[in-house]
Design a protein around this nucleic acid. Structure first.
Lengths: 243, 243
DNA sequence: ATCTCCTATATTTTCGAAAATTTGCTGATT
DNA sequence: AATCAGCAAATTTTCGAAAATATAGGAGAT
C-alpha cells in the first residue's frame, strides 16, 4: 500500500474524501442508489473499504443507510434546504460573533489575505467564476477565515458539516444559472464590518448573505426538488409500529 | 444472520449502538486505545464489521481515528466540556424556542407524560436514582420531549449528538458524587414555563439547568480531567507542516 | 386482472486470511 | 549514555470469497 492521496491517512479515508466531493458536486446524484459493484470499479477498492467510507458519509448525512438495502445519496428538498439554512445562520452568527470578540491580528490578516485571493481569482476567471472548482475552494476558505477565531472546535466542526451540505445545493443551482448575482460587494462589506469589529452589522450581513444565497438557489434550481411531487414509494414488507 | 438487537438493522449497526453506550458509560475509558483483537472478542464480530462501527463513532466524535495507528476513545477535558456546554446551550435554546412557538397539544401531552414517568421513577429509585441506567434513558426522553416540536430535523440531530457527548461527562461524575443536587424542582419549573408558553423564562431556565449541571460535573470529577497535567506525548516520526 | 407462493438472480453484509504499517527490541557505533 | 539501523513481533488495514438478505419473475389459484 503506497500510493494514497495526500492529506488522507488510509485508503478508506481517501475514498471518503473523493466520495464526499462527488456527492457535493452531484457526480453522484441526490437519491441515487449506491451499488457496491459499481462503486468498487469507480474507486478501485474492496467491499469493506467502501463500506467504511459509506458508513462515515452516513454519519455526516450525505448518504443514507437503509437497513439491508444498501446506501443512497441523501435526497434534496426545499424543506431540507430551508432547515439547513436556518441552522446555518444560527451557527454562523454565533461563531462570527465569537471571532469578532476574540480574534487577534493574525486572524484579521488572514481574512484580508484570503479575501484578496478570492477577489483576484474571481476577476481572473471572469463572469462564470462560480463554476470553477478552484473558486469554490477559496470561497470556502474565505468564509472559514471569518469565523476561525471563535475558539470553539465544536462549533467549527458543526459549521463545516453544514457548509458542505449547503454547498451541494449551491452546486446544483450553478448548473442552471447563466450568471450569479454580484457577491463580491457583499463579501467586501462583510470583511469591512468584521474588521471594524462592528458586530451587529457583521452578523446582519452574514445572515442576509446566507439567506439570500439560499433563496437564490431555490429560485434557480427549485424545480429540481421533489418536495411536492410525491413520488409514490414502492411498497415495503412491513413497518415497525409507527405509533 | 438471524439474532440481532432490536432497532438495529445490521450487525455493524448493532455493534455501533453497543459501543456507543460503552463509551458513554465509560466502560471504555476516555483516551483508551481500542485494539481490534480485544474488541473482536468483546463484541463477537469480525474486523471489517468492527471497523465500520468505529468509523461511524469517529464521525460522531466519540472516538478518534489516528492514521495507521488505530482508534482511541475520545479524550475528555475541561476545555472540551465547556465548549460542549456553550454550544449545547445555543442549540437547546433555539430548539426549545421553536418548540414553544410551534408545539401542539400532542407535544404538550407528551411532555407531561414523560415528566410524570421520570418523576415517579426517581421516587421509586430513591436517593441514588442518578446511577440507574433506566433513569438516564427517561431523563433523556424528557429533555427530548421539550424540544421535539421544533420542526427542525437538522437541529434535533445536532442536539442528540451533543447530548450524548455531554452525557459521558455526567456519567463520569456520577461515580464520584454521593448525591446529586435536587433537579426535580428544576425540571418541574421548566415544564411549567414551557407549557405556559413563557418563552423567555423557559429559555433562561434551560440555560441555567445545562450550565449548572456542567459546573457540577467539573466540581465533582474535574480532578479526572488531564487538562493541565501536560502528559508529554511520545515523539512521532514527522508532522506535516502545521504552519 | 390480482394475489400468493415459490424459485432464481442480484445485492448487500459479514468473515478471517493476507498485506501493509507501526512498534518494540537488540546490538553496533559514536 | 545516546543515537541509529535493522529485524521480529504486534497491530492495523485491505481484500475478495462466502453467507445472508432482498428483489424480480413466473406459475398457479381466486
Amino acid at each position: 500500500m503506497e500510493d494514497r492521496k495526500a492529506g488522507s491517512e488510509t485508503r478508506a479515508g481517501d475514498v471518503l474524501q473523493r466520495m464526499r466531493l462527488d456527492i457535493i458536486n452531484c457526480a453522484l446524484k441526490p437519491g441515487e442508489k449506491l451499488r457496491f459493484e459499481a462503486l468498487r470499479t469507480r474507486y478501485a477498492v474492496s467491499f469493506s473499504t467502501l463500506r467504511e467510507a459509506l458508513s462515515r458519509l452516513a454519519a455526516e448525512n450525505l448518504v443514507i443507510a437503509e437497513g439491508q438495502r444498501g446506501f443512497v445519496v441523501a435526497p434534496v428538498s426545499i424543506a431540507d434546504l430551508n432547515d439547513l439554512t436556518n441552522v446555518r445562520i444560527l451557527i454562523e452568527r454565533e461563531s462570527l460573533s465569537k471571532s469578532i470578540r476574540g480574534g487577534d491580528d493574525r486572524w484579521e490578516a488572514n481574512i484580508l489575505a484570503t479575501y484578496h485571493r478570492m477577489d483576484k481569482l474571481q476577476q481572473r476567471l471572469g463572469p462564470e467564476y462560480y463554476l470553477s472548482e478552484e473558486w469554490s475552494a477559496v470561497h470556502g476558505e474565505f468564509h472559514y477565515s471569518l469565523v476561525s477565531a471563535c475558539g470553539s472546535p465544536v462549533l467549527l466542526e458543526i459549521r463545516s458539516k453544514l457548509f458542505e451540505r449547503a454547498h451541494r445545493y449551491r452546486r446544483m443551482s450553478s448548473q442552471f444559472r447563466p450568471y450569479w448575482r454580484e457577491k463580491a460587494a457583499e463579501h467586501k462589506m462583510i470583511v469591512d464590518a468584521t474588521l471594524d469589529r462592528n458586530e451587529e452589522k457583521a452578523l446582519a450581513l452574514i445572515d442576509q448573505h446566507i439567506r439570500e444565497t439560499s433563496e437564490n438557489v431555490i429560485e434557480h434550481a427549485g424545480h429540481l426538488f421533489p418536495d411536492l411531487k410525491t413520488v409514490p414509494p414502492k411498497k415495503r414488507k412491513s413497518l415497525t409500529a409507527a405509533e
